[in-house]
Amino acid sequence: MTVLTGWTSGEAAAPSRDGHGAPARRPRRPRDDRRVAPLFIAPVLIGFAVFYVYPTVRGVWFSVTDYSLLNSPSYVGSDNYSELLHDDQFWNSLKVTAYYVGINIVSQTVLALGLAALMHRLTRSAVLRATLLLPWLVPNVTVGLLWAWLLDANLGFANHLLHSMGVGTVSFYSPTWAMPSVALVNTWAYTGYTALLLYAGMLQIPQELYESAVVDGAGEFRMFRRITLPLLRPILALVLVVSLIGSFQIFDTVAVVYRGSPIPETRVIYFYIYQQAFTFFHMGYASAVAMVLVVILGLLTFVQLRLLRASRSDLG
């Protein structure tokens, strides 16, 4: 932290008198850009130091303290972490999140892959793509409200539809259905977006491959398996990791639909952190739980950055 800011201010304060002394001489290129560089990077460095580096260090510190927002943090060693190991609610939140991520990612990826493949082979319509993107543009809070109303136990349209198809009433808020419902609602919200990313990847595949496969008499399913899937793999892997990272951070939908007090079956890890920090004011403990999430998501992001590099070389 001090290194970053110290360096910037030092550079900014450095005198710059070049060019004034010898106007007749051809302007010589400076050895490097250390005189202008601080101008370019100062706002970003300040933002980064104050709102990323400093809080990251403080977050790690909080996680080994007892801190209630009212007192100042007091060091407790690894207490928070050992408490974590015996905290059923924490393990439950991990389990619930994993369950959510499983349903959400599988359904979303399969549907998006199917939609992308259909679009790729049928149409280049921008209107269609824009329409499919709409749910992604809308706040998760709104998505949660729309579906809370559609799935309402008394007047919801979903149950009306199920009724008219001869299926009985489903209580979407019951412990059994609560998490699958939330997961599928978010699948609704993100499938279009995911499909567009995969579609963009498919456009990179040379069209000639399909043309010659058609000449060879290959059907659509065969082409999908033999051409689309293998060549899409780098993009597919990347999209999968990005979706996973996003999926682990489910919060808004649950927090809004359950009005701030979700049933245990929907108390995901993000919500558990939020609850520990801002309902019980266990800042230290909440930071320790957040550290677990840092490790999980850090690993995923590491893979993502690797894949970003890989996909670049694959698709040239």
């Binding site: 809080p55 977050g59 992001t301």
Partner: peptide, 14 residues
Amino acid sequence: ALMVPPIFTLLPNF
């Protein structure tokens, strides 16, 4: 810093 999830920095930022 891309590897640090927003919730982690959110607590100290708050």
